[in-house]
């Protein structure tokens, strides 16, 4: 069979491979190369070594956005996973209305970040109007606004994954523990949590990368206001490319490379930390 298959390599792989070349490989190689160049369009690129990287790590707005994203990600990863896990536990108790609740909590995931940003902007500004403030009054408001927005959106998604994980725990295992007199807390920490460890790994990984990569919601809800105070890494990179001071595209490209490498490292580290405990 292998022999017959080999002849069909172009048919099966070329459409995807060619699109992948255009949609990823070529832009990726160019992007990494351009991070060492000074340019405004691709054609005027001049090789400048690592000076873009030096400028990037000296840019206080960029450093602030990295810090903001890091704190934001830590807060949202914890909140989203704790809340999603708690909701999933409740919704696997066979209570009335489970299907409806599940449907409602998942719903925000189907709506895009831009639309959600404006929906919540209306709500937050409506509330803050009673205090004669707006969302862009202080970075703290924007920070918690983004946290609430992202939790609202993603708790439902992670909940679905946790429910799937919880349903895979054999029922007789829990029953046996109950017969043996295990308390609720013992069952939770000794049986339930270890059993859903793979799901915890996936969910923390997904919420971690989602937090770091957040762009649409950031753009729509605060657009980085006040004065870059709520600008996250992805938006900072975008503004370096396309903002009013877009003369430093090389620096933007260098920031993006730093961002990608950092994201990969954090992802690998997280996988090690959460998955490695089994041995």
């Amino acid at each position: 069979m292998e022999k017959a298959l080999k002849k069909y390599l172009p048919v099966f792989t070329f459409p995807t491979a060619i699109a992948f070349l255009i949609g990823f490989i070529v832009p990726f190689v160019m992007a990494v190369y351009l991070s060492f160049c000074s340019f405004t369009t691709v054609n005027d690129a001049k090789f400048v070594g690592i000076s873009n990287y030096i400028q990037a790590i000296k840019d206080p707005v960029f450093l602030h956005s990295v810090g903001f994203s890091a704190i934001f990600t830590v807060v949202t990863v914890i909140l989203i996973n704790v809340l999603a896990f708690a909701v999933a536990l409740c919704l696997t108790q066979k209570i009335k209305g489970t299907n409806l609740f599940r449907t409602v909590f998942f719903m925000p995931n189907l709506i895009g970040g831009i639309v959600l940003g404006y929906v919540w902007q209306l709500l937050f500004n409506g509330i803050l109007a009673y205090f004669n403030r707006t969302l862009t009054f202080s970075s703290i408001y924007g920070f918690w606004g983004l946290v609430i927005l992202l939790c609202w959106q993603q708790v439902g998604y992670m909940m679905i994954l946790y429910i799937a994980g919880l349903q895979n725990i054999p029922g007789d295992m829990l029953e046996a523990a109950q017969v043996d007199g295990a308390t609720g807390a013992q069952r939770l920490f000794k049986i339930i949590i270890p059993s859903v460890r793979p799901t915890i790994v996936i969910c923390t990984f997904m919420s971690l990368t989602n937090g770091f990569k957040l762009f649409d919601q950031n753009l729509a809800l605060t657009a980085g206001e006040p004065s870059h105070g709520t600008e996250m890494v992805a938006l900072n990179i975008y503004n370096t490319f396309y903002g009013s001071t877009a003369a430093y595209r090389g620096v933007g490209q260098a920031k993006a490379v730093i961002f990608a490498v950092a994201l990969a490292l954090v992802g690998i580290l997280q996988m090690r930390l959460t998955a490695g405990k089994e041995e």
Binding site: F20, M30, R249, V257, A260
Partner: peptide, 19 residues
């Protein structure tokens, strides 16, 4: 393909648009 999953869009947005 697997590698591309971890690359953030911002890294290639400019060059992808140009391509």
């Amino acid at each position: 393909a697997i590698f591309s999953m971890v690359v953030p869009f911002q890294l290639i947005m400019f060059t992808l648009a140009k391509t």
